[in-house]
Simulated scan of single mutants.
Amino acid sequence: MIDHLGITVSDFDRAKAFYDAAFAPLGASLLYMVPAEYTNGAKVGGYGRDRPVYWLHEGAVPAGHRQHVAFTAGNRAEVDAFYAAAIAAGGTDNGPPGLRPHYHPNYYGAFVFDPDGNNIEAVCHAPEGQE
């Protein structure tokens, strides 16, 4: 149902460094930068695996405005690697990798606040050993 989505980041280069590291274990990377003449000079870039689906737009982030976005991981090891990479890249813990059975018995996720306080998650829904 969702084709793509975007968030505003206060410092594009800082956010890019964070997302470059956090998305690498999930097989995603920065795929496209919109030319500045189409963005009034703001930095805008899209991340994805095969096409841009998660966009960063540099601008003023309203106080208290935080988004939650969850990204699909292929297996639990990718969730673990996402969490470790995101923390190493300056993210803040919001829930280490683990089962969240209150969602469903196989929900394995990890939550990290990005540099602007957005709650970024990697999740695997497959039973252990069936990823």
Rank of each mutant, 00 (worst) to 15 (best):
M1E: 12
M1V: 02
D3H: 08
D3L: 07
H4E: 03
H4D: 14
L5V: 00
G6W: 01
G6E: 03
G6P: 00
I7L: 11
I7G: 00
I7P: 06
V9M: 04
S10A: 15
D11P: 12
D11T: 00
F12Q: 00
F12K: 00
D13Y: 03
R14D: 03
A15P: 07
A15H: 03
K16C: 04
F18L: 00
F18R: 01
Y19C: 08
A21E: 14
A22V: 05
A22G: 02
F23R: 01
F23I: 13
F23W: 07
P25W: 00
P25M: 14
P25I: 05
L26A: 01
A28H: 14
L30K: 07
L31R: 14
L31Y: 10
Y32A: 05
M33K: 08
A36L: 15
A42D: 12
K43T: 05
G45C: 10
Y47V: 09
G48M: 06
D50G: 14
R51E: 04
R51L: 06
V53E: 08
Y54P: 04
W55I: 08
W55C: 01
W55M: 08
L56M: 15
L56V: 13
L56W: 03
E58Y: 09
E58N: 09
E58C: 05
A60Y: 07
V61P: 02
V61K: 01
P62L: 14
P62G: 03
A63L: 10
H65R: 14
R66T: 10
R66W: 14
R66I: 10
Q67Y: 06
H68K: 10
V69K: 15
V69C: 11
V69D: 08
F71S: 10
F71N: 07
A73R: 03
G74D: 14
N75R: 13
N75E: 09
N75M: 10
R76T: 09
R76S: 00
A77C: 05
A77Y: 01
A77D: 14
E78Q: 15
E78P: 01
V79R: 11
V79G: 02
D80I: 03
D80S: 06
A81F: 04
A84G: 03
A85C: 11
A86M: 02
A86E: 12
A86L: 11
A86V: 07
A89Q: 13
G91H: 05
T92E: 13
T92V: 11
T92R: 15
D93I: 15
G98F: 03
L99E: 03
L99R: 05
R100C: 12
P101F: 11
H102E: 08
H104Q: 01
P105Q: 10
N106V: 00
A110I: 10
F111L: 08
F111C: 07
V112T: 09
P115I: 10
P115A: 08
D116L: 11
D116I: 05
G117F: 01
N118H: 15
N119W: 01
E121F: 06
V123W: 02
C124V: 01
C124Q: 09
H125F: 03
A126N: 12
P127C: 09
Q130K: 12
E131F: 02
E131Y: 06
